[in-house]
Design a protein around this nucleic acid. Structure first.
Lengths: 201, 201
DNA sequence: TCGAATAGTTACCGACCGGTCACACCTATG
DNA sequence: CATAGGTGTGACCGGTCGGTAACTATTCGA
């Protein structure tokens, strides 16, 4: 028979969920422990403080994101452009499914005190995402991989927070088309771009 | 001699500042009253609750944003494309100056409980911004004004939260170039776009 | 000058927060 | 059977939170 997960794992996954629903400052450790069907003492034996638990949930989420990248590469081997389009499609799907944007970005908004241990987790995650996306753009052979990847990053981040602020009928409804247009405008013949930034022919 | 502002105005502007620095949940009404050189009782006589004060600060900020739009129109009369480029430039400048992104968007991230009175303020503000930006794009005669304006909205929103998460060396460093490239790709000859979305010639 | 409105002061309330304590419990392994 | 390590329980701590009561001081217009 299927044994229940260990208390530690239950705490991490429930904390993830509750932080997403109520915000990090909006939920207490008591409520997290109760939702994980355990108690505060056990929580504090595994994580020395609430901040530690926050960092652990952010690491947990970023590991799942890393797994998504691997899966994306495997689904379109040796076809970086297809991977790029798969990325857009997956992000659009995630945007449609997920009511609360990116946990890491939300944490960055919420935890403004400099020196909070979560900041290095967030930064490492975002930098890794950026690196992988830029590599994808470069391998796909677009004319300005750095600009395209940062454009796509901003579009994704903006779509998520925009959906939080304006709902699904706001700018985020055109996320996919915006990504496709951006990719197209950087693809091979950089015609429309030449007026904005001088790329050598 | 210059009389001091009325207590109510001091409270609103200081609350604005402190919410921006510490987050809405990260600062208490006591601290706000003290920073405004007044006291909690006076604060509660003007604003029935902290939530009311939050709404008022958000309204205050969105009024300043509306004034910015009027000023933008006045500075380039009858030249929507120049206004659009002025918008990009102003947003880039604001991005460089402001360490904490958009107050309204941040509030949307932080206040996840549905039914919070701030949500209608946030939504009205974001919808108004979107309407004005779309009108600008339409008047500038670009090929797909709705798609371009939503693209620019997402780029701006994404640049702000990205700067919070990754710092100024992240994707937000290419915000201006991304906007210019987007505008260029939708300007007049919609060449590069035709592959992504079928616009009638 | 009087009176009403506004502003300031101090103390207080109940609730909740993150975090700790001492102690009983269960279970697996030697 | 004994022991040890992870787990559960409930009470407790100091601090802070949003919000209120009662009272005094100031301002300002009629």
């Amino acid at each position: 028979m299927q044994a229940r997960q260990a208390p530690r794992d239950r705490i991490v996954s429930m904390a993830c969920e509750l932080f997403r629903q109520h915000g990090i400052r909006g939920i207490g450790v008591d409520a997290i422990a109760e939702a994980a069907e355990t108690n505060k003492m056990t929580l504090y034996r595994h994580f020395g403080s609430k901040d530690d638990l926050v960092c652990e949930t952010l690491r947990y989420t970023s590991e799942k994101a890393a797994a998504f990248w691997d899966q994306l590469e495997a689904s379109h081997p040796n076809d970086p452009m297809a991977q790029l389009q798969g990325w857009v499609k997956a992000r659009a799907q995630c945007l449609a499914d997920n009511k609360y944007g990116c946990d890491l970005a939300n944490a960055a908004v919420e935890l403004k005190e400099q020196g909070h241990p979560a900041h290095v987790v967030i930064e490492n995650f975002k930098l890794a995402q950026r690196r992988r996306l830029e590599k994808l753009c470069r391998d796909a052979g677009v004319s300005e991989p750095e600009l395209l990847s940062d454009t796509l990053s901003m579009l994704m981040e903006g779509a998520q927070v925009s959906k939080l602020a304006t709902g699904s009928e706001g700018p985020s409804m055109r996320f996919m088309r915006a990504c496709e247009a951006a990719i197209a405008s950087f693809h091979q013949p950089a015609t429309a771009l030449e007026t904005a930034s001088q790329v050598p022919a």
